[in-house]
């Protein structure tokens, strides 16, 4: 199981050819109180960088991008009634969706945890 990160502050944890996607603690902290989340439904397909989900704070709506291409196998339905989970546990229970990767080679362009930490420190 390996976790990768994007410059847009998504994380993706890969186990075999299934990956779980969410937003990082850094992103959740920047957003502030999450009041609404729209996650993709099973069966939806995305290219790398496509708008995949929406997360809304009191202030504004932000798009969440697909870190890599794939087909969604499950959206986290629990976030509809408990969007605050994204603040409380962004890199755990606050996951957005699970997806089947189209091309695991795309993972190579993402950051590992150390690189992501350094990236955030530079912001």
């Amino acid at each position: 199981m390996t976790t990768y990160y994007t410059e847009d502050h998504e994380w993706i944890t890969v186990e075999g050819d299934i990956a779980t996607v969410g937003i990082t603690k850094y992103a959740a902290d920047q957003l502030g109180d999450v009041v609404f989340v729209e996650v993709p439904e099973a069966g939806a397909s995305f290219g790398k960088g496509d708008d995949m989900a929406v997360v809304e704070s009191v202030k504004a709506a932000s798009d969440v991008y697909a870190p890599v291409a794939g087909e969604v196998t499950e959206g986290n339905g629990a976030l509809a009634d408990a969007p605050e989970t994204v603040n409380e546990d962004p890199e755990g229970a606050g996951w957005f969706c699970k997806m089947k990767l189209s091309d695991s080679g795309e993972l190579g362009s993402l950051m590992n945890v150390d690189a992501y930490k350094a990236f955030c420190d530079g912001l």
């Binding site: 502030g32 109180d33 009041v35």
Partner: peptide, 9 residues
């Protein structure tokens, strides 16, 4: 736009 308390609080 906000302080550490956050918009909602």
């Amino acid at each position: 736009v906000q302080y550490p308390m956050g918009v909602k609080d």
